[in-house]
Amino acid sequence: MAAAERYLQMNARELRLELEERYAAYSACLDEERFEDWPAFFTDDCIYKIIPRENVERGLPLATWFCEGRAGLLDRVVAIRKTMMYAPRYVRRLVTGLRIVGWEGETLAVRANYLALETLLDEPTRIFNCGEYRDRLAVVGGELRFREKLCVFDSLLVPNSVIFPL
């Protein structure tokens, strides 16, 4: 609780700095393909979704990618490493326009724009997916972790496949 207290008492500027660090670490983890480290950014009971904006706007529940709990994230990591067949690629995530919506109890609501760029062999880098993170973070183990992370994307027509997390 004491740790949560520390975040609750931070002023907006301090909190923003903390969050920017956190989001930069999250992007770096994925950009560098350290997928095994990815679940550690989440709480055990997390929800992670990549979901088309049109579904959200129509109140439709279907997500393109839907993980429940850290166990669900781990399964995706195993799939990326062991089961799925895909062409080699780089994906780089740019996160900007971070907005602190505010505390809801001990959960912090945050929104940010993201842009994921994809580079495939023989093709110039392209915009792969652009959207908004709609996140809720909780303080666990002395740090802010995602209890819920929704990647709500504008890029409705997905260029081929979504293999790596956003």
Binding site: P52, N55, P61, L157, P159, N160
Partner: peptide
């Protein structure tokens, strides 16, 4: 009941 849409451009 429609649960949702997904669209992809497959080359």
């Amino acid at each position: 009941e429609v649960l949702g849409y997904s669209r992809q451009l497959i080359p």
